[in-house]
Every structure is written in C-alpha cells, then in structure tokens.
Simulated assay, not measured.
Amino acid sequence: MSAVTESIEQTFISPGYLAGSGDPAWVTVPLRRASGWSTAGDPLVPRVILTSPDQLAQLRIAPDPDPAEPWWSLRHAHHGDQRAWEITFDAQTPVEIIAAVTDTFTAPAPPPTASVDPYGPLRAAGWHAPRHHDGLTSPKGMSSPNGLARVDRIVDESGRSAGWVVETSVHHLPAIWRAYVDGNTPSHVTSALFGALADTAPLVRHPHRVPSLAVTHGSTSTRQVSAESVAFALRDRTTALAQRNSAWPPSAPPAPPHAPTPRRTR
C-alpha cells in the first residue's frame, strides 16, 4: 500500500514583483548557512545585520515605520579597483528578487574586464523604453510590458550614470516598492537584479498572504502542492547554494619564487 502524500494550498502569483515581501529567511538563511556570513544585532532593536566572511559586504534589515524608508540595505566596501556600492530595497520587495542579488556572492564573479549589459534580461522579457521621463532620468529606462514595473537610470549634473531606481506601482497609487541601485554596483549584480525582476515564473505565497493588488492587477491561481516540497524548499535552496559555493573556492595569487610560506591566521 503506497503512502499518501499530504498536500496544501499555495497561490502562484505572476508577475512576481506583485507577490509581496515573503519570508526574509529565503535570503538570510542561505547567507548564514551556505556562505558563512556572520550575524550581529541588538536584542532590544528590531534589526538584523549579516556580514560576509571577508568583511567586505554587509546586509542590514531594519524595519522602519515609515513605508518610504528602505528596510533592506546591501553594502559592499571599496576593494581593489571596485568602488564601494550599495543597493536598498523597500519592505514589500519580494525576497526572491533580493535573493537574486545576494546569490551573486555564491557564484564566481566574471572577469574584471567582462562587460555585462544590465538591461539584457529586461529586453529579452519584452520590456521597452518608457513613454515619459522626468528631468532626472535618462531615456535609457525600461518599462515592463504591463506598465506596472519600471527601471530608470539616474544621471548626475554632468550626465554620468549615478545608478538606477526600480519601482513597482499601479497607476496613480503610491509605489508598492522601490529599489535603489548605486552606480558603482558591478554590472553582473545589477543584471541579476533585473533578471529576477523580468522573470516570468510565478512566485509562491500562502493563500492568506496574497496582496490585494496581485489579485486585481496580476494573475493568481491557487492549487494543491506537496506539503513536503514547501517544507523543504528553503533547505534545498540552501544546500544547492552551499554546493555551488564550495565548487568555486577563491583562488589565491601564486606566491613569488622563493617566497616564504605565509602563516595561517585565524
């Protein structure tokens, strides 16, 4: 007699950027368990801080009562030829989109000379130049086919790129969420963010946590899925990232001839 597989209801939401925030553990647990990021925080302050093993990157989650203030901040310090950079996300940014950015820390970075077109994933998904611009954005912005999401390149007074603003909004209502991308952000990181934004695969949420705008302006369908697949989704994701991380160890520069063997430090 075969065992009966338990199933539960889950709602599939498309486009994903209307799915709501989701569980922050989708981002934080893999960083901690698969990539060795350390955690810090004050038990009296509702804030989470994770720092990369090399101490160059830091992710801060700081809930703010002001909905206009970002909750997520990812900062990377100046290192070599790479200037310091930062990306911030509002509270309602889907965690899967944030994870696309943090997951770049578990993948091999492209060579410094490699040039990645950040807008490539958007063009491939049918995004187009928006019809209107304000005085601070260049005409190189991109808008989703349904007009609900937009990416604008911000320029400074000299005309140089100062970064990007990602915004999801419905008509004349306040923005659902925004992300700000520093102009110094590596192109492969920006491309990962835009790729997640343009991804047409639906995101999964509990039926009781589906935003109303996703129902009225997106596509939702609720169906039965394996309870086991839901329960172990985060574990499986963490395991996969840990395996990818271990498969690409950082390469150390070769020691010069006759150089003494460097001492191991803790």
Rank of each mutant, 00 (worst) to 15 (best):
S14K: 11
P262Y: 08
S161P: 04
G218I: 00
P46A: 15
T137D: 11
Y119P: 01
E96T: 09
D23M: 07
P94L: 10
H206Q: 13
V116T: 08
A196T: 05
E157Q: 14
P94T: 05
T104D: 02
S52A: 15
A255T: 12
W127S: 04
V151G: 01
W26I: 13
H76L: 04
L241D: 00
E228R: 07
A247C: 07
G195H: 00
L122N: 03
A100Q: 03
G159W: 02
T102F: 11
S52F: 05
W164G: 00
Q10R: 15
A240P: 03
T185G: 04
S38A: 13
A107Y: 08
S143I: 15
V48G: 06
L234H: 14
I154P: 04
A179F: 02
G163F: 06
W177T: 06
S229C: 09
S169Q: 15
A125E: 06
T5L: 10
W37F: 00
E6D: 15
V151W: 03
A214Y: 05
P202T: 00
H128K: 15
P250R: 09
P207G: 07
A233W: 06
S219A: 12
A68V: 13
P174Q: 02
G183C: 07
R237S: 14
S38Y: 03
T11E: 01
P250Y: 02
P174L: 06
L50R: 06
H78T: 14
G22T: 05
L203I: 12
M1I: 06
P202V: 03
A3Y: 11
E6L: 15
S246P: 01
G80E: 10
D103N: 14
A149G: 10
D117Q: 07
S251Q: 15
G16Y: 03
L74S: 01
R75M: 08
T39W: 07
G80C: 06
I49T: 13
E9N: 14
V225Y: 03
R209G: 03
F12D: 03
V27Y: 10
V101R: 00
V166Q: 01
V27Q: 10
Q224W: 05
A129W: 05
R205W: 02
P108K: 10
A242K: 14
R209Q: 12
A125T: 04
P250L: 06
R264I: 03
V155W: 02
Q55P: 05
R150D: 12
D199H: 06
S73Y: 09
S21K: 02
D117G: 02
H206V: 14
H133I: 09
A196I: 01
A252F: 08
P67E: 11
P260V: 08
Y180F: 11
A227I: 02
L74N: 03
R83F: 05
A227M: 06
P63F: 03
L241M: 10
G159I: 02
H79M: 04
P250V: 04
P202S: 07
V215D: 09
L31M: 04
S73V: 12
S246C: 06
T239Y: 05
A196M: 04
A68F: 13
L197Y: 00
S229T: 15
V204L: 07
G163R: 05
V155P: 01
V151P: 01
G126E: 09
S191V: 02
S229K: 11
